[in-house]
Design a protein around this nucleic acid. Structure first.
Lengths: 186, 186
DNA sequence: TTATTATTACTAACGGTGTTAACCCAAAAG
DNA sequence: CTTTTGGGTTAACACCGTTAGTAATAATAA
């Protein structure tokens, strides 16, 4: 039942955006009355929160796959960037829930570990690259944030369609370019 | 009247977040009944849209001030970055409305010029820096996007409180660091 | 078998939302 | 003096999140 609610909610979010998700629509879709939903979830926010957690877990699995596939930290970092990018555009509804500004479900304290999964993964890879070179912990921390920022920022800008580059292939090239420049200057 | 509605709406958004803004609350605050609001705005989305436009205009004024103050493109670019950063954290409600993912008021086509004001400003500065060096139009375009991305990304990450750096001074240092690295490698 | 409890689902309501149709009334125009 | 206009209202519609109260059914205890 609980999983069914989440599955249906995700479907509705995919179809009409998370803004128009309503408890009543979920109830209709699972062919139950409204209050049964409150037997399984505290409130609507809890549903969105759980959906975003599913998103974090899905992304985490993909990153773990990269980790197993690529031992070389540079290759792994490139793979992580690609994975993050593809995840965002294949699952924009998840990405908005997970990283959108002012989302009703984002409770900063609650989901810290899941929230930082991506940061931790790229952090590991970057530390792997940087280990030979002399780089203080602070510098490394800065670099991790800078890498995450450029990825997240570019994804956001493209998702909001405020990039004047319309071609998606082109946008990906911008990302690859940024990733290359970043790695070169590590 | 129209300006009054917008002023009151902005005040409410500042106090309780844009999620909890309602037409009735605005009507109460301006001491009129609900339908008068619809004499001045098509719907709620139009109010949020107009607010976000005010945000774009405010940011644009600040960037224009930088432009007048700094003739040297590198100094100007640094000033623009600082201005963008400060604008975001002094006016988080504006920033969320303007650049938030999945905002109900963001209509990609409508506000393109305002949306791209920041990009255009940093674009001008970057072109000024890059003019001596050999850089194709495409490369320059990429660099502009990369610069915007790292700023917007970092602001978003810090705003969502998913940065593990709690100190705001520290976060600004990460930005300065990124800006420095970016300019050095132009 | 009967009585009691627990489970599962429902209806119906409360207060709130965006939006709009219908109306009211005072001031200006004929 | 009547009519039109414009600014303002009330009241409603259809939806929303949330919850109290209830009916029915299944499981358990007597």
């Amino acid at each position: 039942m609980r999983t069914n609610i989440l599955a249906v909610a995700l479907q509705l979010v995919k179809e009409e955006g998370w803004q128009s998700l309503s408890i009543r629509k979920i109830a209709d879709a699972i062919e139950y009355s409204v209050p049964v939903i409150y037997d399984h979830f505290e409130n609507k926010e809890a549903i969105l929160f759980e959906l975003s957690m599913d998103g974090f877990r899905l992304l985490d699995r993909l990153l773990e796959k990269d980790k197993r596939k690529y031992a070389d930290p540079e290759e792994r970092l490139r793979a992580h960037a690609e994975t993050y990018w593809n995840f965002a555009f294949k699952n924009p509804e998840y990405y908005q829930l997970m990283y959108g500004l002012g989302m009703p479900c984002s409770s900063p304290g609650k989901a810290k570990p899941e929230f930082n999964s991506f940061r931790d993964h790229i952090g590991e890879a970057i530390e792997g690259i940087v280990t030979d070179k002399k780089s203080s912990d602070e510098e490394t921390c800065f670099k991790i944030h800078a890498f995450w920022s450029v990825l997240h920022g570019l994804i956001s800008i493209v998702m909001m369609r405020c990039s004047d580059i319309d071609d998606s292939q082109m946008n990906k090239k911008v990302m690859d370019d940024s990733v290359n420049a970043f790695i070169k200057n590590l």
